[in-house]
Design a protein around this nucleic acid. Structure first.
Lengths: 333, 333
DNA sequence: CTGAAAGCGCTAACAG
DNA sequence: CTGTTAGCGCTTTCAG
């Protein structure tokens, strides 16, 4: 089988304890023997058995990255950036385990023994039972992207309400008054926040939003397309539409051009997220950037210090969104 | 601490050995005691300690999913589909560990002890040392997406050459003769295959491709944009462009419209991959679908039977690509 | 059908 | 500074 510390011990003429200590750089061992033992380990191509370490140290070297779901409602870009963000900080220090919360029928297997820490990229308040379970199981948790009531757990997100407020204000500043909203997926907190920011901007500027301008959406292309189509059939269609994410904005643009109209000449469209392709579609999308990768990185960093130093500093962190002005909105008189 | 089989044993008045057997459904135990023990386990909310199991069973319950890189050159959609594909088959039977090969400076830690199996989504022949290492370490491996010489290891991919051939043939059938190519990222086998399929179609139809029609690319939007810009400055620009992936095709379309021209009226564009947004951009992209999710699923299934039943059936599998006709190519006389 | 004992590879008192 | 011993939680002979 593979080589163990006992093999090394035999060759070095010491006890396996000494080998263990030498390899873990214990101050109890003389430099001389340390070097000798390490040389032998190197030679034999020794790799520690992590199962054994885990068993005795009570650490798994696993870091969980959980999404609400891997099946639907999670955009590919979002997913990608989150994984990248976390991965750049853990590199090969931990195993990054990616899962959908809905992969589990029972959370029994989610224990402190199998996860040293968990990052939850939360898109829905349906995730709460999972988060509660993790906390109850004493696993250090960082919740990203969605605000969570429970004070005392790491919580990093972007200020989405402010982002939507920023977007809506921009549309108003461009002279628009008949502004429609295509909402995010029902039950997602982000959908609610964005809608709130939008409405707040309208209220602040004294603009009343007709009920028929408030359209449902699912965060996917399809739903943006369908809702836009309906808006176009209104007796008095809007002059601008704020879509709660970029994918729906693309769907909306498609619906508009299908009808023989042009963006932004006949109708202005805004998105939210600034996904990778948003800059390259035609017209390039005016949108709001949510710093997912940054959020993920920040969350991972804090979680690790938490795990490794047992710290407990837990103020919610809001990272700022940024207005990205491109070509899909035009100024009207 | 958490509950162990010994706790259960005590409560049930049996030895921990019996508990272990009962929980693992050993035929040596009477139905009666099995039921009794399981009830108690349930009651105590027992979860096995996987580190301990791993140590004695010599299995880690980890399945590695390795990409060439998580940093660049991997499109978000590709990534997403691959993870989904694998995840749907493993669910909670294994831990899915997602990593970039370039996260590792040394492959020392990649051992049979820490991975029961590895899926490599390979995009470059630079992955070969990693694959060789895994094979040498006796880890069951499935290589997806790229053909691999080593017979005897699982290998699933799409037939990209055929896909590109299909695409090019389609362009020719639509009457195009001045056809340009924007290539994929250098060093990626897929880039080579797609180019080959393209050239073969040209050869078969007796069309010579000017050197100035062969443009470099990096599989990202930027490079599609730049290369297209250059093509437009040619004395005799092409009437159609085949881009080696959809992202570059979007970049190309952007370059064309920036110049005041229209797709497909003035110039036809084809992509490759059929990423999620391809259907919704304007014009909707004519492209070739590569069944990544299917490939990933198929790879995972075969890998698992391999792990669990020690089978050894290893013919390379090619899954068919599909021509997706939309609106970005027009017929010319 | 059940139990006693050994051991997987490693770390951590405790004793020198 | 080094070694002896025990034990993490589990499975697996081997004996009843």
């Amino acid at each position: 089988m593979s080589v163990t510390i006992k093999d090394i011990a035999k060759l070095a003429g010491v006890s396996h304890t000494t080998v263990s200590r030498a390899l873990n750089d214990s101050p109890l061992i003389s430099m001389e023997t340390k070097l000798r033992i390490r040389a032998i380990a190197q030679e034999l191509n020794y790799t520690p058995n992590f199962s054994a370490k885990s068993l005795v140290l009570d650490r798994s070297y696993n870091l969980g990255l959980f999404f609400t779901t891997l099946s639907e409602g999670t955009s590919a870009g979002f997913f990608y950036e989150a994984i990248r963000g976390v991965n750049t900080v853990i590199r090969d220090r931990y195993h990054l385990i990616v899962k959908g919360i809905d992969d589990y029928r029972s959370f029994q297997a989610i224990t402190r023994k199998s996860f040293d820490g968990i990052v939850v990229v939360s898109q829905s308040r349906d995730d709460q039972p999972f988060i509660d379970h993790a906390v109850a199981a004493q696993i250090p948790v960082a919740v990203l992207n969605r605000e969570v009531e429970d004070k005392g757990i790491l919580n990093i997100m972007s200020d989405e309400e402010q982002g939507a407020f920023q977007a809506a204000t921009y549309l108003i500043d461009q002279g628009h008054r008949r502004i429609a909203l295509i909402e995010g997926r029902k039950g997602f907190k982000s959908a609610q926040n964005r809608k709130e920011g939008f409405l707040q901007a309208m209220r602040q500027r004294g603009i009343t939003v007709k009920n028929e301008y408030l359209m449902p959406g699912m965060y996917d292309l399809q739903s943006g397309f369908i809702s836009m189509k309906q808006l176009l059939e209104l007796a008095e269609p809007p002059t601008a539409v704020f879509c709660c994410n970029d994918e729906m904005a693309l769907g909306a643009i498609k619906a508009i051009t299908d009808k023989g109209l042009q963006v932004p000449k006949d109708l202005s469209v805004m998105g939210f997220d600034d996904t990778v392709f948003s800059a390259f579609v035609t017209p390039a999308l005016t949108t709001v950037r949510r710093p997912i990768e940054l959020i993920a990185r920040e969350g991972a960093i804090r979680l690790l210090t938490n795990i490794e130093q047992k710290e407990q500093d837990h103020e919610p962190v809001y990272l700022k969104t940024e207005l990205i002005i491109r070509d899909s909105v035009r100024k009207i008189n």
